[in-house]
């Protein structure tokens, strides 16, 4: 049973990735190619992908006995899942943001692709990997990533739309609205990142008897968080908006990616032990 589930998981992931790919292609056709009728279909494929993806994650969870937060494959998969699920959940009410699908679905495809490329080997859990604080820690980083991805999607679309006044990207909200979306999701990313750090600190406190050790991941995480605070303050007090704010947010997002996916490779990081 366990072995079958474990064999099943990468195949389901592959199917989900293909479905995300279809959803992404339809979203791009709908928004850029002005084929509005395709937009609901893109969404339907994304739902389907999400369903398959959910089954894949559960299958693996059951098979390996721990949540999707140990190997790189699991983390990337969970990030994609949270980003898409969060996006679908918020756009149920926030209809204006739906066209951000052109950014979210391809990102999900990319994350899944890299995940499958790194390979679904199972890693065994070290004794420190347990408890509610660990779960909260990773969950909030996933949320932070998902919201930051949405925000940066809005910023990128803002830049594209502001440069193409000829009516391309017609399905996308007006630039001021995109700008506001980026601002709000950027703010949420900041909040979730903060709580992720907090939960991480509490976890570290239980697991290693210290809540903060200035290891590379922790340090860069803090720097990223402060960078997001900088973005929010620039908007708020220096009335930064539009293109300038969009570029700053993209920079923050790149920093966040660096922190999430690369600092754990640095030697001497506690996280390095587990994520190599």
């Amino acid at each position: 049973m366990t072995v079958e589930l474990l064999m099943l998981d990468p195949r389901l992931h592959l199917v989900a990735a293909v479905l995300y790919g279809i959803a992404a292609a339809l979203a791009v056709l709908a928004v850029v190619g002005r084929r509005d009728a395709l937009s609901p279909w893109s969404r339907r494929f994304a739902y389907l992908a999400l369903a398959v993806h959910t089954v894949a994650i559960i299958a693996r969870w059951v098979a390996v006995g721990h949540g999707p937060y140990v190997s790189r494959y699991e983390v990337l998969s969970a990030n994609a899942w949270v980003a898409v699920a969060l996006f679908e959940a918020t756009t149920m009410r926030f209809r204006a943001a739906r066209s951000l699908a052109v950014f979210i679905y391809p990102s999900a495809l990319l994350l899944m692709g890299i995940g499958l490329y790194t390979g679904p080997e199972v890693e065994l859990l070290p004794p420190t990997f347990s408890g509610i604080w660990l779960a909260l820690h990773v969950a909030f980083y996933f949320l932070a990533f998902g919201t930051a991805l949405t925000a940066v999607g809005a910023s990128v679309l803002y830049l594209l739309k502001a440069r193409s006044p000829d009516g391309r990207l017609a399905g996308v909200p007006e630039p001021p609205e995109l700008d506001a979306l980026a601002y709000r999701f950027g703010g949420l990313a900041f909040a979730f990142w903060g709580i992720g750090m907090l939960a991480g600190a509490i976890w570290a406190y239980y697991a290693w008897g210290r809540f903060w050790g200035w290891d590379p991941v922790e340090t860069w995480s803090l720097v990223t968080w402060l960078a997001f605070a900088l973005y929010l303050h620039m908007r708020r007090f220096y009335a930064w908006k539009g293109a300038r704010a969009a570029y700053l947010l993209i920079a923050c997002f790149l920093l966040a990616d660096g922190t999430l996916f690369f600092t754990s490779l640095i030697d001497g990081s506690l996280h390095a032990v587990y994520f190599r």
Partner: peptide, 25 residues
């Protein structure tokens, strides 16, 4: 380990979190 104020520290962080959610949601 002996320490004081961890609970207050975490309470502060939760306030930051809920404050931010209130601001952006």
């Amino acid at each position: 380990v002996r320490n004081h104020g961890i609970g207050v520290l975490f309470a502060g962080f939760f306030m930051i979190f809920f404050g931010s959610v209130l601001i952006y949601m």
